[in-house]
Amino acid sequence: MTILAKPWLWSWLAAAAAFALILGLTGGRGAGELAYAALSFGAFAAIVGLGQMLVITLGPGNVDLSIPATMTLAATLALKAMGGEPGTAFAGLAIALGVGAAAGIANYALIFLLRLPPIIATLAASLVYQSLAIWSNRGLRIKPPEGLADFATGRFLGMPNVAWVGLALAIAVWVLLERAVAGRWLLATGQNLRAARLAGVPVELVRACTYVAVAMFAALTGYLLASFSGGAALNMGAEYLLMSIAVVVIGGSSIAGGNSNVPGVWGAALFMFLVVSMLNSYGAGAGARNVLTGAIIIAIVIAASTRRART
């Protein structure tokens, strides 16, 4: 298998091309600044994307549409509980992850007990989560504790802290998928549920854990994003629904499941930020920007999938 056959390559090439086009406009000025911004904002898309990738890997029809609402609910409850008091960052993190775990369990319960298709179950559940978020704090933006805000907007060794978190999670997911039995179970379940069950894979346990994992990834993203941007807002998750699916597909994971691609998710997350920045920098209007973004995404997906088909 040559390097060209790697499906994740295309998202990285596209990200690099968008980066180069912006620098072409500025004459090379602001490269570090742009890379830093891309890593900061790409990290949020990458973390939700990793979660969505795990669910999509479960096979056709598996997707979590409650990601935006879970992000909003986790961030709202965590920031409300912290109330801006110093020293509460870890308590807030525990609350956010707890909300994520509860949302994941609720999603899976709807899918397993009521036999609802995941699309319907997670969409319906997301209305409940969003309403809970509205009801719990009526949309008030509470500031994160100062230490937490400094962490979320800070840097370590020149790279944003949130990007380090995203990188660590990506490595963890990669090791899980490529080196651990649990990851093999997940891939087997996604490739053929019945065959996996007959082979002794605890498929329902795998599915349950995956739905809990995606919700916890979403909750963590909500917590970090709210700390980064100065508070939770009711519509903070809105753009992460399509984003989470787009980064999985652009990253070269199979939408039919059973095949996942961790490096591609990061490349796609950077690309999604850079392509919008590029079109903004070139002064494209909102309409042209949406059309071009859509066209570029389709082109990358075609490039990545034809390469895969040939090998």
Binding site: I22, T26, A38, F228, S229, M236, V276, S281
Partner: peptide, 13 residues
């Protein structure tokens, strides 16, 4: 948060 992201992306240029 959306404004912050969009501005961070266009500022270098």
């Amino acid at each position: 948060d959306v404004a912050q992201k969009a501005v961070a992306g266009i500022l270098p240029s």
